Simulated assay, not measured.
Amino acid sequence: MGIGSLRSRLVVLLSVMALMGVALVAGGARASAAGIDRAAFVALAREAGLSGEQAAGLQEKVDGYLGKLAGSGTQVSPNQIELGGAVLNVAVPGENGPRPLGDVSATVENAGECNGWTKYGWFCAYKYKNRSGDNIGMYRCGYYDIPWVTTGSWVNNQTTGTEPMMYYTNSGSELLPPAYSYRDSGVNWRVVDRIRNCP
């Protein structure tokens, strides 16, 4: 079965669960739908060539991020979380950075815009130094939570002169250098709460 076919099955399953949710207790409906989402994304990851262990490990990472984001993100592929103007790309456990797994979601402009480079118009936050590890690609103006506590990097390749604002957990903030700019190491994400990628 191809990835397109699995994606079609996922859409059908989610539609059925949405209809069933009308007749079920809200809490039970959400739990059932979440279980089907999880299983479908794991199946898509397997179809994309991951082993059962890799697919399960990847879904655990995604689940962890969804928990930290507390409702502000929606899983749209085996390794993508849509953030309403940004996309969090998740690497398969043991790999240096995210890679495409199946079709890019229609709700995400392009999931690979932060994989090693940053397309013009984007701000990319990387979990680790030298633009590696999981990343968040911000393509629309907004506030985006940083869900990791590592030492990483960022690239600001937005419209020339755009200055993002970094907000800290201690309620402080810092205006970052205007585009084009970058910091390939030493970014202490542990103290960062969120980023507004535009003025």
Results as ranks from 00 to 15, higher is better:
R7W: 13
S8H: 10
R9H: 08
R9M: 10
V12Y: 12
L13A: 13
A18H: 09
M20L: 07
A23V: 13
L24Y: 10
G27P: 02
A29H: 08
R30V: 12
A40V: 09
R46D: 07
G49F: 14
S51N: 02
A55M: 13
Q59L: 13
V62K: 02
Y65L: 13
Y65H: 14
K68T: 06
L69P: 12
L69F: 13
G71I: 12
T74L: 09
S77L: 01
S77D: 14
N79L: 07
Q80E: 15
G84S: 00
G85Q: 08
G85L: 06
L88I: 05
L88F: 01
N89A: 13
V90D: 11
P93Q: 11
R99M: 13
D103T: 12
V104P: 00
T107G: 06
V108D: 03
E109Q: 12
N110F: 15
N110K: 09
A111P: 04
A111R: 01
E113A: 12
Y120Q: 01
G121N: 08
Y128P: 04
N130L: 11
S132W: 00
I136Y: 01
Y139T: 00
C141T: 05
Y144H: 03
G152N: 03
S153E: 09
S153H: 05
S153P: 14
P164D: 03
P164L: 00
M165T: 15
Y168W: 09
Y168I: 00
E174W: 03
L176H: 07
P177I: 11
S181F: 13
R183I: 10
D184T: 11
S185N: 12
V187G: 09
R190Q: 15
